[in-house]
Simulated assay, not measured.
Amino acid sequence: MDKNFIEACRGVVKSGRVLLDEPMSLHTTFKIGGPADCLIFPATMEETQQILKLVRDYHLPLTLLGNGSNLLVRDKGIRGVVVKFGEPMSYIRCEGTRIIAGAGALLKDVSECAAENQLTGLEYACGIPGSIGGAVFMNAGAYDGETKDVAALVRAVDGDGAVHVFSGDALELGYRHSVFQTNGEAICEVELQLQPGDGKAIRAKMDDFTQRRESKQPLDMPSAGSTFKRPAGYYAGTLIDQTGLKGLQVGGAQVSTKHAGFVVNAGNATADDVIRLIREVQRRVYEKHGVRLQPEVRMIGEE
Rank of each mutant, 00 (worst) to 15 (best):
G80K: 01
M24D: 04
G251S: 11
M1S: 14
E123Q: 07
A260E: 05
T29Q: 08
S167P: 09
F5L: 12
A114G: 00
V55G: 06
I132F: 00
C188Q: 07
G184L: 08
V12Q: 04
E112I: 09
G237P: 05
G34R: 02
V250N: 03
S90C: 07
L64I: 11
E280L: 12
V154T: 06
A101Y: 02
S223D: 01
L62K: 06
E112R: 15
A140S: 11
L119M: 04
E302L: 11
P23L: 08
E95R: 09
K3D: 12
M89W: 05
S131K: 03
D149I: 05
V81Q: 05
A224W: 00
M299T: 14
D207C: 09
E112L: 14
T210H: 02
P222W: 02
G199S: 12
N4Q: 15
K200E: 14
L153C: 15
A204R: 11
Q294Y: 07
L71C: 03
N70L: 09
Y58V: 12
A152Y: 09
R17F: 15
T270A: 07
S215L: 07
H27D: 10
V12R: 01
E191P: 06
H259Q: 10
R230M: 04
L119Q: 02
K200A: 15
V163K: 12
E116M: 10
G199L: 07
E287K: 14
V264I: 15
L245H: 03
R298Y: 09
A269Y: 08
V255H: 02
T182N: 15
R56L: 09
F5G: 06
A170F: 13
L106C: 12
E296K: 08
D144E: 14
L52N: 01
A103R: 00
T147H: 08
A156K: 03
L62E: 01
E172N: 13
E287N: 08
D109I: 07
S131R: 02
L248T: 12
I99L: 06
F85A: 06
V83R: 01
Q294V: 15
G247K: 01
R176V: 11
A142Y: 01
I100T: 09
A236T: 05
E280F: 06
A271E: 13
V264L: 04
A43S: 15
L171D: 04
D37R: 02
R212L: 12
G174F: 15
G134F: 00
K288F: 02
Y175G: 03
R284W: 02
L65Q: 06
A266M: 09
R93N: 10
S25R: 13
Q217C: 04
I78V: 12
E22Y: 08
L39D: 14
K14W: 12
V81W: 01
I275S: 05
G233D: 00
F209Q: 01
V291Y: 00
L171M: 11
T48R: 10
V81P: 01
K76R: 13
K14M: 14
V297Y: 00
R10S: 10
M206I: 09
G102Q: 03
S167F: 10
A269G: 10
C113F: 08
H177V: 11
P61C: 03
K84Q: 13
V81T: 10
Y91Q: 13
I32H: 03
A103G: 01
V165H: 12
Q211S: 15
